[in-house]
Nucleic acid binder design. Structure first.
Lengths: 191, 191, 191, 191
DNA sequence: TATGAATGAGGGTTCATTCAT
DNA sequence: TATGAATGAACCCTCATTCAT
């Protein structure tokens, strides 16, 4: 039972970070108030400060949580035998989320875009998360024997970020679907 | 004399819209106050409301001004003889701005990303501007005889938006330069 | 009429600073909210920030106003012919205020005491005000031909600060009266 | 075993009161949070309320502890044979603490000054402590055969409080040293 | 007794918008 | 038209106090 208590305690911090990431994705950093996040996590506003000293720290925790989510996604992808399959599975994941993307954009990209305008160092935190995913993509291209792995990784990741932005701006999930298939063919062509 | 008055009025209005677009690009929509824009345009805060009823209307004017700027850029590109040259010239323009992009991102893209989070209809305004540029790119691919012109236009534009985001996030203008050259080769390969 | 307007405008800043000094004296720095000061000055809370960017700046303005008040008091004292008369007149002023002192202490002293606990530099501002009065007292002792003018000035000023504290703590104006007379005799004895 | 429990309880209570007095002196009443005191006493915040129902009660306990400290100091002074020696020894104690005074002022005086601004009755508590020390000083002057013992006691104590305030305001321990010597000569002159 | 966690009232500050002239 | 000043709603954050175990 003390375990239950413990998990509840610990859970609250994570519940807050998770709720924060969700709300931040949906509403944007500047439009989101602490009260919004607290409500989403079903936590009284004042209590948030027991877990996070400032709004910035909560945002940072949200970014970390997002990073861990991406890491776990990567772990799953790692199970696949070939780098091509891994990259295409990554693509499929993106395509599957196209409705969410049409509504709110890519969580990583919109966050990076918005955090860049702030004075605090949070833009570095999201850049790190993005960098790690980018590195992983690069390693896949390396495994495919490409000398230009970094350039290709940047191209692929940029293509995803860009189509996410268009998908979101035009509220059209179809854009992501079409571009996703095109990228798939492109990956196949590199083998 | 009414002409003088009119031109003064119009001048101030446009000065405000122009300053707004600049400041919005640099600071982001939510971080920018009316006072910031007024200061950048050298107009007293109270006076802004003579030209724009709300902050939203001023933002909309800024978007319109940005749209006209893009149109004028397109007009210049139109002077070039072949669609390939036009597209590659567009690319060069983007590459030339890579330092600004590394600092603040693509004006159109960052604005679209941020405006999407708002309740007002401003996201439609920036989508329209983006759509017009996208249509023009599509027409170039059509002129190149491509059946998949729309898809290609989306791909090219997304690639630019995505690399702008990465360039901005990683504060590295080199990313734009490298990806720009890659896209140039890609356009050549489509001929 | 524009003069009336001007004086009203200028007056508001000063009204705020004056009200601030009064309320700060009565309630103490930490117990005083901006709303308290705003109410005392009959100014809406939000409007305070048009004149002062932070609470600290308002406090500083209050200290400055207090300093100017002391300066004007000194100017009046300067009219008296001998340094002894000037010092004794200063003493009489203190004694006359004994009821206010019994209720709230010496404005300068209580402020200095409280501001010392803060991180901002406001303790330096009140120290400067206090230092200027102290210097003036020293000059009187010098004019009396005393080599130990500084030491005497410190002694006299400390005696006043101390008896103010006791008068306030014990809520007994009589303490100030008695000690004031004693200090008067002491000054006479130095001639 | 109940003794153990009792001594533990008592110990914690006193540790809290002692830590409170120390922190209150250093940070001031209003700037000090319960958490500050709890940390200084190495007691969990929630546990403080087992010993003190409110912050006020803890402050009162701190004042009491300070009073007992002064009483013990007086007991030591009482060992000296003559009232002059006792008073001068008191002075020496004050002078020895001049560095602490320059940093934080006299504990009794700063506390009295701050508590006066509050609605609760704590100002009476510190006044009582101050009054007892004052009474003791008065008794020394009486023992010296002075009819004006009360007036002299008030003068001496006020001089100390005032020079403490100046020493603190100007952050200059030298002020206390010089004024201390002057007061010593003054006491000698009264014999 | 002991303690981490919860709660909510209140304070300083910002800013779009409006007012008065 | 032009402009300094006014207004108030909303936000982040602190902290004494209470709760649950």
């Amino acid at each position: 039972m003390s375990q239950v208590t413990d998990s509840t305690r610990t859970g609250k911090r994570e519940r807050l970070a998770g709720a924060a990431m969700r709300v931040l994705h949906e509403q944007g950093v500047e439009k989101t108030t602490l009260a919004d996040i607290a409500r989403a996590a079903d936590v009284p506003v004042g209590n948030v400060y027991y877990y996070f000293k400032t709004k910035d720290q909560l945002i940072e925790a949200a970014i970390d949580a997002h990073g861990r989510q991406l890491e776990s996604m990567i772990s799953t992808l790692e199970q696949l035998p070939t780098p091509q399959e891994r990259l295409k599975s990554l693509l499929h994941g993106w395509i599957e989320q196209r409705d969410l993307t049409a509504r709110y954009g890519c969580p990583t990209g919109t966050l990076a875009s918005e955090l860049d305008k702030r004075d605090d160092g949070l833009d570095r935190a999201i850049a790190k998360v993005m960098g790690e995913l980018l590195d992983w993509v690069e390693r896949q291209f390396q495994a495919m024997g490409r000398d230009d792995a970094r350039e290709l990784a940047v191209a692929l990741f940029a293509a995803y970020q860009g189509i996410s932005l268009l998908t979101n701006t035009f509220r059209d999930p179809g854009l992501m679907a079409v571009e996703g298939r095109r990228l798939e063919r492109w990956i196949d062509s590199l083998a």
